[in-house]
Design a protein around this nucleic acid. Structure first.
Length: 805
RNA sequence: GGGCGCAUAGCUCAGCGGGAGAGCGCCCGCUUCACACGCGGGAGGUCCCUGGUUCGAUCCCAGGUGCGCCCACCA
């Protein structure tokens, strides 16, 4: 064993061994209580990023902790087909070859996607393995697997038959590049510099008119009214009259509607139901027509008359030119506002009216809300729980159809007479008229529609499988804040609806890892840090440690320091193991003899810290757990215990060696969930190893060592006094032996002096005496606090006494 | 506009009612037979501001200031 621990090679070897030996496998017929995490399936085209790494570090620590305890753990891996994202990637690839999906046609395009995935997809599981993630890789599922598709179809048909899925013509978000609708949650918003133009719509029957402000003059062609707030005195007389829309010279009414903001622009709003969500609502309330002048490609359509075929910018210019000539253009001012973009291609989103499939939330969300309110599902941290409830309460009906070619095609067949047949499998005849001239619905489902089934579709649902019976419901899910509405809430209501139970009981909303400078990690900004690079440099164990440490706040800057701390911990552990193993010389077996005070102390200490760390894991306090582990390893195990027994190790004291190996075993067990590789590597070097550390529980016979803390504390106090004052206080027996082994006063040069130390102690004594002399403190403070002060006072007095003060 | 969170050592962050902490960085001393990715010592802080509660506030409450994130149909 070399003095410097080198994780490269070691980690890959263990990752391979653990998997080959089947330690990651979950079996429905295995004994033990279950512990299940259906890990969020990454996009099939995805690469490991820091968010994945964090999720894995946290979830895997819990899985390994539970596995060691003997739980039947299932850590479920898999991929999401990621509809628009994957289609986008393949289309970009096609574009590089001068092709397009339209030229290929749907069937060929789909084949192309499969081929592309075969070549470039599914790479991330290799990267998950490199993190040391103990997923049951045999169980890898893909949301486009035949079985999974069947589950999606079953879910759709179920909801349809319940009357919760319906078609409707509404305003939706349209991406002109992908030519599909998108949900609000698939948009990004960006601040853009634009223009706000003020245009007057003259009254049809007299002088004057109403001036409106708009950022999208091209849509003037589709205006069907001008709206003002009912209480707006400026327009009292205008309401009910008609105005003339510029350019098209169409007469439209001036109406009053509460939703108009009198503060914005002139307080008068041009109403364009076909191209604006707010206007759409106003239009429906007032029974207005819904013309559209922008087409699916984002350009002016045939309804735009002589402007058809133009871009919106060109059309807007022409209309403004017309308005200027007619004296109706009041002013143009610079205007900065946020615009909606497609999150994949960053095209400007066009609101337009389209017939789409919708899923009603009314009934689905009720049981889910009950589950959240009654805390059958708990969010961590607690503050996210309220948000989850609020966002589910407010959830609007869900647009589940997408006009993409990659995804689950909606299982609906149309016959020439307009009847609709909904079946889980390929259908030959119309359910109503028997017509065989069926055309399958072309739309596919929103990616999240299938993701919602992940916790049970991965276990074989809709079939009644042993896995499903054994491993559903699961235990927890880890995810980012912005995924709560997209995924968490939908898994909860889907699970309740189809399985009759929540899919998990706890949701960990983990921190967002920012770049070291506080900016968002992003490829385009160049602020991303590749976890694989950090692993290559410091090892997966160190990265896991660092990420656990960074998990405590809502947003955290990536800290190489935290990773380096993890590496140092691994190295320290490696070296203290060398010390003990060299002493054991391959002969001694671990055996807790604990004949000396420092041995009983470290064993009691290990057991006490174990209890604390188990609480940390159980309450998802990852940062607290790793901090406790670091202190335990460096301060307690290495600096005190190992130093104290060193002379005995050199004397080949059999009791000391056997007990040290036993203590080391316990330390390794505590560290394994965070540093699995280095601990397993050391574990195999221990004499007489039969099982792997990855499945070694904490020995049951523990807790038999009472803490002889005061003995050790007396030594530690003596060490502190010596270093601060140069005075060696009197100790006897074991205490004296430990003091000399650890402090080695003959070699260490003490700083400070006795008088300064006496002064410090006198001050402390005065403070404690002051508090204890305060009647109200003694009366009101908790008894243990008062008692603590008394003990401190006594200690200070003892120390002062020892210094001859 | 709404929600959540954060302000503690030069940096990254723990602590969250009774002695201000860690890692990194810095200074001093150590190549002592596990480890220089180490060991020992040290300097460095009006715990953002103002009030309030309390015997006692970095910690609880209110208000303020400054950041960050998420959400929202400002035409």
């Amino acid at each position: 064993m070399e003095p410097l621990y080198r994780p490269e090679g070691v980690e890959e070897r263990w990752q391979k061994t653990w998997e080959e030996e089947g330690h990651y496998e979950a079996h429905a017929d295995a004994p033990g209580e279950t512990f299940v995490i259906a890990h969020p399936p990454p996009n099939v085209t995805g690469e490991l990023h820091m968010g994945h790494a964090l999720q894995l570090a946290l979830a895997d620590a819990l899985v390994r902790w539970r596995r060691m305890q003997g739980y039947n753990t299932l850590f479920q891996p898999g991929y999401d087909h990621a509809g628009i994202s994957t289609q986008n990637a393949v289309e970009k690839d096609l574009a590089r070859q001068g092709k397009s999906r339209k030229v290929l046609g749907r069937e060929a395009f789909e084949a192309r996607v499969w081929e592309w995935l075969r070549l470039y997809g599914r790479t991330i599981m290799t990267q998950f393995r490199r993190m040391g993630a103990s997923l049951d890789y045999r169980r890898e599922r893909f949301t486009m697997d035949d079985d999974y598709v069947r589950a999606v179809m079953r879910f759709f048909v179920h909801l349809y038959r319940k009357g919760w899925i319906y078609r409707a013509n509404r305003i939706i978000n349209w991406c002109p590049f992908h030519e599909t609708s998108l949900s609000d949650l698939e948009l990004i918003h960006e601040e853009r510099d634009d223009q706000l133009v003020y245009v007057t719509y003259p009254f049809a029957d007299g002088d004057g008119g109403v001036t409106i402000a708009t950022a999208r003059p091209a849509t003037i062609l589709a205006d069907v009214a001008v709206a003002v707030h009912p209480d707006d005195k400026r327009y009292e007389d205008a309401v009910g009259r008609e105005v003339v829309v510029p350019y098209v010279e169409r007469r439209v009414p001036v109406i009053a509607d509460e939703d108009v903001d009198p503060e914005f622009g002139t307080g008068a709003l041009k109403v364009t139901p076909g191209h604006d969500p707010l206007d759409f609502d106003i239009g429906r309330r007032h029974g207005l027509p819904e013309p559209m002048v922008v087409g699916a490609d984002g350009r002016m359509n045939e309804e735009a008359g002589d402007l058809a075929g133009l871009s919106q910018e060109e059309a807007g210019e022409r209309i403004l030119e017309w308005a200027r000539e007619h004296g109706l253009l009041e002013k143009v001012e610079p205007y900065r506002h946020s615009v909606a973009l497609c999150e994949r291609c960053e095209s400007r989103i066009e609101p337009l009216i389209s017939e789409q499939w919708w899923c009603s939330m009314e009934e689905l969300k009720k049981p889910a809300l009950d589950a959240l309110r009654s805390k059958r599902v708990r969010y961590h941290p607690e503050s996210q729980h309220r948000f989850a409830i609020d966002s589910l309460e407010d959830a609007p009906d869900w647009n589940i159809s997408r006009q993409l070619w990659w995804g689950h095609q909606i299982p609906v067949w149309h016959c020439p007479d307009g009847h609709i047949t909904v079946e889980e499998t390929e259908t030959q005849a119309c359910a109503e008229c028997g017509s065989t001239e069926l055309r399958r619905e072309e739309d596919v489902l929103d990616t999240w529609f299938s993701s919602a089934l992940w916790p049970f579709a991965t276990l074989g649902w809709p079939d009644d499988t042993p896995d499903l019976r054994k491993f559903y419901p699961g235990d927890l899910n880890t995810t980012a804040r912005e995924i709560i509405r997209l995924w968490e809430n939908r898994m909860i209501f889907s699970g309740l609806e189809m399985m009759g139970d929540v899919p998990f009981t706890d949701v960990i909303i983990h921190s967002t890892v920012l770049a070291p400078d506080g900016r968002r990690m992003s490829k385009s900004l160049g602020t991303g840090i590749d976890p694989l690079d950090v692993i290559a440099e410091h090892g997966a164990d160190a990265v896991r440690y660092g990420l656990c440490k960074m998990s405590s706040t809502q947003d955290v800057r990536f800290s190489y320091g935290a990773v380096e701390e993890g590496r140092k911990l691994a190295n320290k552990l490696w070296n203290v193991s060398r010390l003990l193993l060299q002493a054991a010389d391959g002969e001694q077996k671990p055996d807790l003899r604990a004949s000396a005070v420092e041995e009983r102390w470290i064993l009691a200490r290990l057991d006490r810290v174990r209890a604390q760390i188990e609480t940390d894991w159980a309450t998802f306090n990852f940062a607290g757990a790793v901090q406790a582990l670091y202190r335990l390893t460096f301060d307690d195990f290495c600096d005190w215990y190992a130093e104290a027994i060193k002379p005995r190790l050199y004397e080949r004291d059999a009791d000391a060696i056997a007990t040290a190996l036993g203590a080391l075993e316990r330390l390794l067990k505590l560290l394994h969930p965070v540093l699995p590789h280095v601990t397993e590597e050391i574990w195999t070097n221990l004499p007489a190893r039969e099982s792997r550390l990855i499945v070694s529980p904490w020995p049951e016979e523990d807790s038999r060592f009472e803490v002889e803390a005061d003995a050790l504390e007396r030594v530690q106090d003596a060490a502190a006094i010596f270093l601060r004052s140069g005075v060696v206080v009197e100790l006897e027996g074991d205490e004296r032996r430990i003091f000399e082994a650890k402090v080695r006063p003959e070699r260490v040069q003490a700083n400070g002096n006795a008088e300064a130390e006496r002064e410090r102690l006198r001050k402390e004594i005065a403070r404690a005496e002051g508090m204890l002399g305060n009647e109200r403190f003694v009366r009101n403070a908790p008894p243990d606090v008062v008692e603590g002060e008394r003990e401190k006072l006594a200690r200070y007095r003892r120390e002062l006494d020892a210094l001859g003060g």
